[in-house]
């Protein structure tokens, strides 16, 4: 990339960074301009990227060059989704949705059960005593109790009274800790992104920091 393009790119980045951050103080027309630019460019980018990665290779290479004519079936199925914009034939778009949902639900039934259910339960069978490290024993006990109690919280067919109520409450607290951790991590990830943008403004753009 030429020197001029690098400079233009840096100024564009700086402009859009400042304008997008300005909304934190107050909504303003420049922010709305940047916001609409972002949405438009990102949507256009997604379409063009799908064209590069899937549509073009399927048509030019697989279909026309290699003669894989069976690909016409998914292509027609994919195009049928656009019939939903033409009322008299809108029902045809159900074929696309049902095809995708058929494979999707089959995938969930066949593939998801083991990693997200069986393996998770298997991994919860931890040694609760005699690991040689008392802190590990305590952690394992808390882990198993926390997991079981969180599951009990989701049992809506039993009344949450008495023992069930107490177990469910422990599950609730365990989940609150999990949500707190997730929240803390999300905030830190966003702060790190923000620092990156500030480093760009003060370093690459203004040259105030190295």
């Amino acid at each position: 990339m030429s020197e001029t393009m690098v400079t233009v790119g840096t100024w564009l980045q700086a402009f859009f960074t400042i304008v997008l951050v300005s909304a934190v103080f107050k909504d303003n027309p420049l922010y709305r301009f940047a916001e609409h630019t972002y949405v438009g460019l990102f949507a256009g980018y997604g379409v063009a990227l799908t064209y590069f990665n899937y549509i073009r290779p399927n048509v030019t290479k697989n279909l026309l060059t290699d003669g894989e004519w069976s690909l016409l079936i998914p292509i027609i199925l994919g195009l049928l989704i656009y019939t939903r914009y033409v009322k008299p034939v809108a029902w045809l778009s159900r074929y696309t949705i049902c095809f995708q949902l058929g494979i999707g639900s089959g995938y969930v039934l066949a593939k998801d059960f083991k990693p997200y259910f069986v393996d998770q339960i298997r991994a919860t069978f931890l040694p609760l005593w005699g690991t040689g490290d008392w802190w590990k024993d305590v952690s394992n006990i808390l882990f198993v109790v926390g997991t079981v109690c969180s599951l009990v919280y989701f049992l809506f067919t039993i009344q949450k009274k008495g023992v069930q109520g107490k177990v469910s409450l422990v599950g609730r607290y365990t989940m609150m800790i999990a949500f707190g951790a997730a929240f803390g991590n999300t905030v830190m990830a966003r702060v790190s992104l923000f620092l990156g943008r500030m480093q760009f403004l003060l370093g690459d753009w203004l040259g105030l920091i190295k």
């Binding site: 998801d112 998770q120 926390g146």
Partner: peptide
Amino acid sequence: VPNAAGMRGIQIGACLGGVATAL
């Protein structure tokens, strides 16, 4: 520990919900 335990409970519940919806 507590985060993984809570998330595991949620994940198992979500998996059962996903399987039920898929069915």
